[in-house]
Design a protein around this nucleic acid. Structure first.
Lengths: 338, 338
DNA sequence: ATGAAAGCGCTAACAC
DNA sequence: GTGTTAGCGCTTTCAT
């Protein structure tokens, strides 16, 4: 900046004014400055700028998700990025792998860089470490799951109702032995979806059969193994409810083709409608979720100090075929099997 | 920091030393400082720090992709992020939508924040605007495509050879009327893949039939429409080569089930092996691509000043079923059709 | 309309 | 081992 000032024959202050588009510079001077800027290829150092202007922010937000490679979070990230870009903000991203320790590290790196706001998919760990940055003015919004003990805007979907609808759908087709395959039980969405599963069973007067419930499936492989275990039971399930996309993929991989059991999965997948049978799913809208979270965050950054809001978006049951086998064909007439 | 110094009864400089883990502070003083840090919930302002330490960088890199929501780039991003996290770096991300203007905006916002390095999927636009930041020490690596006129490390795959192998595979199954469906021709990968398509035809002594070549398909919908046009030809193609994942999805959507033509797609898709028939594809490894680009970038950031390298990773043809229909069934015995 | 001085939060370089 | 001074690149404030 000093160099530009020298070349243009003005003071650094005038360069600052021109570069930042502030008024009060004569057109002639401005032109000379702009020429010097182009000649030297000068670009303002925004970090230095943000250091001085304490009242304005850094025009940087951060997004902390479980796993950026997961298409669900990738879509959310893109949606957040678009909202940020519209407003002249940039986005830092980090994946936690659902590890509280990595979450802490990543968020600390972000707050140390003075981000104006944070959109996080919180892990099961505590979030006391957010208190100080929040008092310092950093805004926080939770997405996908609430953070225990953290009173901030939160965007989730109706996991429990969505899961209940899925399982009720299977019950409506005559199934009574419906397995639940879920990820780690310490993940809020998984607990909610399991509760929805139980709700549906209870509404039909059915008790939970522990043999049919598998928690903690962290991978494609584990989901596949759990399915094998279920099918080896004396009275195997005639229908499956898979509680996230990864588990759905694993289960599909372990089944014959076409699948001999009914399946409904939570989360839509590309190509789901091209499978045979097409996959029935409970779908949520990651773009809407990300966009909503971003809008809440920018409202806060813009000065909104109202009480924290919880926004619950709705899931939809997409009936396509895989959940509509009648139970009779596999259980009530065992003689017909194999 | 001054507050911490006051509470601990030391000078700011001592706080700085403790907070940055520098030696030369007595254990007793360090303990008092750390206590004050905890009491006040102090966190160092890394932007201010980076301002002073000009020789060290900002420990921030940026990743600029076409579309973060595309699973291919999402996987790449996750891979880059992991490499960055291992080294204590954070990652800014931006999507360009393949628009040179947005690319410029996004990159300018990143360089203004003094990123140490940039991994970019370059658009077709010129990249002269990168010259100044690069002279200022910002390292740049291109990924997925080279940037015209930009001498930097570049990571790509063997697009041309991969496409040729795919089309040769179709030719090997007796097809002679093979359609090419591609994205915008101004995208380097699409030109390369089209060249590979021509290479394969030429090797079999076949000329290009312009009727069978469709460029510029930007969406699922456009791919579907292009397919309809191809099938309405007097002599429709018996096989299709789709030049990216989005086009493959659009084409699959427009076909009966099971597909009456042979298909090979560029880029793998989740569930591709669960389709009927399972989808034969040319697959590239986004995790390896992202990891390689990140390693090259960090080598540069670490001081490597050797001549720019071009790394070409290999694609693999995954034969699964959709590319192995014999051409005879649809063309040589027209009487059998319908 | 322009510039001089001071300072954002931190640390390099030098004292003691 | 600890503190002082100066200054990173920019902008606020106040003067001219």
């Amino acid at each position: 900046m000093k160099d530009v000032a020298r070349v243009a024959g003005v003071s650094p202050m005038t360069v600052s004014r021109v570069v930042s588009g502030e008024p009060g510079v004569s057109p002639g001077t401005a032109a000379r400055v702009e020429q010097a800027v182009r000649k030297l290829g000068y670009q303002r150092n925004d970090n230095a700028r943000n250091l001085r202007q304490k009242n304005l922010g850094t025009s940087t937000i951060a997004l902390v998700v479980d796993d950026l490679a997961n298409p669900f979070y990738a879509l959310m990230a893109r949606s957040v990025e678009d909202e940020a870009h519209r407003r002249g903000y940039v986005v830092l991203v980090g994946s936690t792998n659902d590890e509280p320790r990595r979450e802490r590290e990543v968020i600390a790196a972000f707050t140390a860089r003075q981000v104006d706001g944070l959109i996080i998919v919180p892990t099961k760990g505590g979030h006391g470490f957010l208190k100080q940055p929040m008092e310092g003015g950093t805004q926080v919004v939770c997405v996908d799951r609430p953070a225990k003990g953290l009173a901030v805007d939160t965007v989730t979907v109706d996991n429990r109702a969505g899961a209940e609808r899925a399982v009720a759908h299977l019950l409506g087709h005559g199934h009574t032995r419906i397995a639940y395959l879920g990820d780690r039980y310490d993940i809020w969405t998984q607990r909610e979806r399991h509760l929805g599963y139980l709700d549906a069973l209870a509404a039909h007067g059915l008790p939970e059969d522990p043999d049919l419930v598998r928690h903690g499936l962290r991978s494609h492989r584990e989901a596949r193994a759990a399915l094998a275990g279920l099918r080896a039971l004396d009275r195997p399930p005639t229908a499956l409810f898979t509680s996230n996309d990864l588990i759905t993929l694993g289960v599909l991989d372990g089944l014959d083709h076409p699948a001999p059991v009914a399946i409904v999965g939570f989360d839509d997948l590309p190509l789901a409608e091209r499978l045979s049978p097409p996959l029935t799913v409970v779908s949520q809208d990651p773009v809407a979720i990300g966009g909503t979270a971003a809008n809440l965050l920018f409202a806060r950054i813009g000065g909104d100090r109202s009480a924290p809001r919880s926004v619950v978006l709705l899931t939809r049951l997409l009936v396509r075929g895989s959940g509509e086998f009648r139970a009779e064909t596999t259980t009530e007439h065992p003689g017909h099997q194999r």
